[in-house]
Nucleic acid binder design. Sequence first.
DNA 1: TCAAAAGTGTTTATAATACACCCATGG
DNA 2: CCATGGGTGTATTATAAACACTTTTGA
Lengths: 229, 229
Amino acid sequence: MLKGYNPENKVFLAVDCIIFGFDDEDLKVLLIQRDFEPEKGKWSLMGGFLKQSETLDEAAARILHDLTGVHDVYLEQLYTFSQVDRDPVERTISTSYYAIINIESHNEELIENYNAKWFSLSKVPDLIFDHNAMLDKAIKRLRRRTSINPIGFELLPEKFTMRQLQKLYEAILDKALDKRNFINKINSLDILVKLNEKDMTSSTKGSFLYMFDQEKYDEKKAHNFYLKL
Amino acid sequence: MLKGYNPENKVFLAVDCIIFGFDDEDLKVLLIQRDFEPEKGKWSLMGGFLKQSETLDEAAARILHDLTGVHDVYLEQLYTFSQVDRDPVERTISTSYYAIINIESHNEELIENYNAKWFSLSKVPDLIFDHNAMLDKAIKRLRRRTSINPIGFELLPEKFTMRQLQKLYEAILDKALDKRNFINKINSLDILVKLNEKDMTSSTKGSFLYMFDQEKYDEKKAHNFYLKL
DNA sequence: TCAAAAGTGTTTATAATACACCCATGG
DNA sequence: CCATGGGTGTATTATAAACACTTTTGA
């Protein structure tokens, strides 16, 4: 046997997915109620085990899809949790991933799954194992991330108003932003297209809709543009 | 058997440590030459397997100590690598950690281990497995990290000159910095103590030595102070 | 007519950058 | 006496922050 490749050292490696969504008001996280032991009935992140033939990235995408029907989202690795007793059944290490998705555009998929539900961050229940700690870490990362590279367009519908975008950032950063400064900063990034179209549902006056310019965004992202809010 | 806890899913979980050091000129990384298979004779990061009774943090500290004698350093988790064929022997996932240490203050420990050696970043050889990718990721993280929170005092002797500190930042960031601007910024952080003592080895005039004020540093770190260089 | 959201610029404060010369001394 | 690194300050520019009023129209 080669040094260290001792079967006694083998462990279960799980993957847990933290899925954020936004509904024009609150930042939410997707949880499922477990219908199996251990901790049956409790809420948890979407989790599963890594298989021999897949990478962690692939496992995260598979697990998310299997449990919620959601697919084609960009999942980013967050952290690997390894407390010895984190899983009461067997020694299990867990690598967590997080993603942010547009609630509306994935709702159909979710409706079919009765165990998955969105929770506002302020109303997240006690989760199994160390999942609350995972969620906390994901929130922190999302906040830091947001002020480095403008993340967040993934959370909105294709066409959105400045108000929606601002509310999104306020929800992520958990603080109020000045409307004029916000608009000026976003505009200075030059990654939005203003449409000749108004959203009339939000006010009597109606507000212009914007779209996100993927090409310009990709171009700028390559040089890591900062966005201090 | 409980859902998913299928022994077939078990994997080896390795830990690899990227140790950065600084010698007044270059940023270096500590590597060891393997004296066992696979890839015997090739250079690699300090690596080993996670054991059942320890966390990844503990495994990283143990492995670093076992292979180099170095102890009591702050190791931070970097990323978990999971390419299916990254290890030719067995399916092995690896969680990487990185640390920055003061070369001088750990040299005794290292001298006793003939297989460990410092390499300038520009002269790192081909490493085993995906260790070059790990190193690349660690360098990127270190650079980003450095411009958020002043890291780097760990890399210097207890007493150091402004020149040394500037050289260190230049080595980490891989770019030249303006002397006056650098000193002004560092001073404005108010975390250094200027000593009544000069280092005479570096020049005929001699340059004042500084120490790092741990108390002030901890105080400020709590509020995440930024340092843009 | 009024409530509710949309839209719009300027001023001020702070932070980042660019820049050049004299000093001290060991060899 | 000169080469080498040490030490120092100011002006300019760029970015962030604070701040208030007018517009529109459906209910």
